[in-house]
Every structure is written in C-alpha cells, then in structure tokens.
Amino acid sequence: MEEKIIKLVVGMLQENCFILYDEDKNAFIVDPGGSSELIIETIEKNELNLKFILLTHGHVDHVGAVATLKEKYDLDVYMSLEDKDFLESPETVRSSTFGLKTNPAKVDHLVKEGDEIAFGDNKIKVIETPGHTLGSVCYLYKNILFAGDTLFNESIGRTDFPESDHNKMMESLKKLKNLDDDIYVLSGHGPETQMGNEKLNNPFMRNL
C-alpha cells in the first residue's frame, strides 16, 4: 500500500495543509496554517499517529495551528534557522501578512540544504529555496515535493515582502528545475501540478 495524502484548505488565506500517512497510520503534517479544530478532527477520524510537523516557511498562514498541534500531540517541529523567529517570536518580526496573529511555538530541529528526515523506511529531503522568505524550504519525499509558497501551478510565491528576495527566488527555481519531470508539486496555495508542466508552462521557470 502506498502512502496517502490528505489536503486540507485552512485559514482565511486558503492555505493548503497536507497530511501524509502510511499503511500503519504513521503520519507527518506540512504547514498547518490554521483551522486547528478541522486538522485535529481529521487526525482523530483517520486514527493517525502524527510524528512531526514540517514547515516550509514562517508566514502566519502556514504556521497558525502549530502551537495547538504541538501541545496536543507533543510534536517536534522542523523549520529553517532563517525563518524560525516567525514561529518562536512572532511579536518581534513581521509575522502577519494580513493582520493575522499566531501563538508562538518552539522549533525543535533547524533544517538546511541536504538534510534528511526519517519517516518509516524512507527519507524526506530538505531543499533550501529562499525567495518568498529568506528561509523558505521545500521537502521532497519520494516523488512528492511539498513546495510551500516557492512554486505554484504555473506561478510562484510573492517576492515583494520585506523578507523576500526575487533574485534568490530565481536561483531557487533553477535548482528545482533540475528535479525530474514526473515529480508531483504540492503547493501552499492552489492546485497541485507536476514539475514537467512547470518547466514547460510556468513563465518564471520556463526560460531559466
């Protein structure tokens, strides 16, 4: 049996939260950005054994439910050093995109390029993709890329925030362009896509 993925669209900004689980019901969650009651209901209904939280970056619409889930399930949180203050000290950084607030939570593991996170008999690979934020990362598990707000279906995340860098985003897209065409891209907003489609049809990636 292959792993299964649950997609939940959460919070006021319609962010995609993903829960991946295996045949033993062991699971990890990516970017629980809000709607903690819905996320908990989904975990309980599917009888999942949640192992850890992966965060692609620190914006409030991606981390809003972290504190609640971490406390309820005693979960470790993985995140980049550059973005950790968004979660740990939201009052000291621009944690709000549209006036939304979040409760602080501790980052347990700081991730960087090339790190591998064990899940069952497999590994989740960390790919640094600064641009949308300076600490943005993607997580590659088998043929699935959890892309956060780096790469969307034929678009990319905004780079006009104070913590953004458009030149770094272009370098990150060049890095992602080296991935295989058949990799599924699960983005932080909007529909899923495949890397081959992005190489052909994404105007930001096509001519790199």
Score class of each variant (00 low, 15 high):
residue 131 G to N: 08
residue 95 S to I: 05
residue 63 V to P: 13
residue 16 N to F: 12
residue 66 V to G: 15
residue 93 V to G: 08
residue 33 G to W: 06
residue 102 T to G: 14
residue 5 I to C: 10
residue 100 L to M: 15
residue 48 L to V: 02
residue 135 G to W: 05
residue 17 C to P: 12
residue 141 Y to N: 02
residue 188 G to C: 06
residue 84 K to S: 12
residue 107 V to T: 10
residue 102 T to P: 11
residue 86 F to C: 02
residue 153 N to D: 15
residue 145 L to N: 03
residue 146 F to A: 02
residue 12 M to S: 15
residue 84 K to D: 07
residue 104 P to N: 09
residue 53 I to S: 15
residue 152 F to L: 07
residue 187 S to C: 14
residue 70 K to N: 14
residue 185 V to R: 01
residue 134 L to N: 08
residue 29 I to D: 13
residue 2 E to W: 11
residue 54 L to H: 11
residue 71 E to I: 13
residue 34 G to E: 08
residue 71 E to A: 15
residue 129 T to N: 09
residue 185 V to H: 00
residue 30 V to I: 13
residue 114 G to P: 12
residue 108 D to T: 13
residue 148 G to N: 02
residue 154 E to G: 01
residue 91 E to R: 09
residue 139 Y to A: 10
residue 115 D to H: 13
residue 37 E to R: 15
residue 53 I to W: 11
residue 32 P to V: 12
residue 162 P to N: 01
residue 5 I to K: 11
residue 50 L to A: 07
residue 119 F to Q: 06
residue 107 V to D: 04
residue 37 E to S: 15
residue 43 I to R: 11
residue 198 E to R: 02
residue 174 K to T: 00
residue 170 M to S: 00
residue 8 L to Y: 06
residue 123 K to M: 15
residue 28 F to G: 10
residue 99 G to R: 06
residue 191 P to F: 03
residue 82 E to D: 10
residue 39 I to M: 13
residue 205 M to S: 02
residue 189 H to F: 03
residue 198 E to S: 08
residue 104 P to W: 05
residue 140 L to S: 01
residue 127 I to M: 02
residue 193 T to D: 07
residue 196 G to C: 03
residue 172 S to H: 00
residue 139 Y to T: 10
residue 42 T to K: 12
residue 1 M to Y: 09
residue 43 I to T: 08
residue 111 V to Q: 05
residue 130 P to W: 04
residue 52 F to C: 14
residue 23 E to R: 09
residue 161 F to H: 10
residue 169 M to K: 03
residue 112 K to G: 11
residue 174 K to F: 00
residue 159 T to P: 01
residue 83 D to C: 03
residue 80 S to H: 09
residue 130 P to N: 05
residue 128 E to I: 09
residue 162 P to M: 03
residue 195 M to T: 04
residue 194 Q to R: 11
residue 192 E to W: 05
residue 125 K to T: 12
residue 32 P to W: 11
residue 19 I to C: 09
residue 13 L to A: 15
